[in-house]
Design a protein around this nucleic acid. Sequence first.
DNA 1: TATCAATTAATAATTATTATTATTTGGGAT
DNA 2: ATCCCAAATAATAATAATTATTAATTGATA
Lengths: 148, 148
Amino acid sequence: MGLDLEAVTGVLASKGLKITHQRIVVYQALLAAKNHPTAEQIYDSIKSQNPSISLATVYKTLETLAENLLIHKVSTPQGTMRYDARIDNHNHIYISNTNEILDYEDEELSKILLNYLKKKNFDNLSITDFKVQIKGEKINPDKGISIT
Amino acid sequence: MGLDLEAVTGVLASKGLKITHQRIVVYQALLAAKNHPTAEQIYDSIKSQNPSISLATVYKTLETLAENLLIHKVSTPQGTMRYDARIDNHNHIYISNTNEILDYEDEELSKILLNYLKKKNFDNLSITDFKVQIKGEKINPDKGISIT
DNA sequence: TATCAATTAATAATTATTATTATTTGGGAT
DNA sequence: ATCCCAAATAATAATAATTATTAATTGATA
Ligand SMILES: [Mn+2]
Ligand SMILES: [Mn+2]
Ligand SMILES: [Zn+2]
Ligand SMILES: [Zn+2]
């Protein structure tokens, strides 16, 4: 799912961001990641190919990408921030015994919630985000989960 | 809503916890709080009456209470942990411009979600928590919000 | 009342993140 | 193609939140 160089530079340019090697590399690393990594995990994944990059730059780059709505920040029950290149609307499952974050998306659930929200009137509150947060643990940590 | 001394000691005893002054004071402070305080806010609220109490003890006491399911830990988008003496099932609204956490409870929503969940089958996943997380901001930060 | 494991206070250490600042660089102007 | 400079980066220090360590204290039990 990772975008190639031209696509990434195009996306950065579309936001008026300077095209820097660091931004390209961090963004591509997150696009390639399948596991909602931390800043440090992204740093670890790119530093062998980019020995002079700084962890602080990774943090700052991720912040910049998030401000420009190119990525999302995902807060976790443990308090450490994680990052997500998926910016379409979807929910997350936090798996406490493996520390994984899985994407969870269900058309039916989205519809139910949207429908519920439409009926409610929140006075003096502008809702910026509304999602379901599922927490659980894997019965067998070595296996995947499936939903039916 | 704060429980009195006998009630609090009774609750602690029911969990087999030693009745210490620190536990009583921290627990009562959280019971009296109406705003999902941080550990430090609880510490600040009790230290004038308990000058020798340590912030680390407040953290440890809250952890102990949470482990014994007497209180809940509430993670926030900012990553700092907050605490809640309400342990019945309810949802939270995070208000980003005032840093408030409001309780949000709606019978209809609970029913909808429970009903949805019952139909789904999550294989290899044991769900420990399932809630709605609303994020928003107050239009007028000085006023309350109301929901209709 | 004596005993002792559990708890606490004091403080150090750790983790995650942000701030500072001197240096470098991308990209528009020449 | 070179010049220029605001913006970005690397290196590092600082901060904030939380956890660990340890010696002293204390609640509960005998
Ligand atoms: Mn922090
Ligand atoms: Mn932390
Ligand atoms: Zn995701
Ligand atoms: Zn609450």
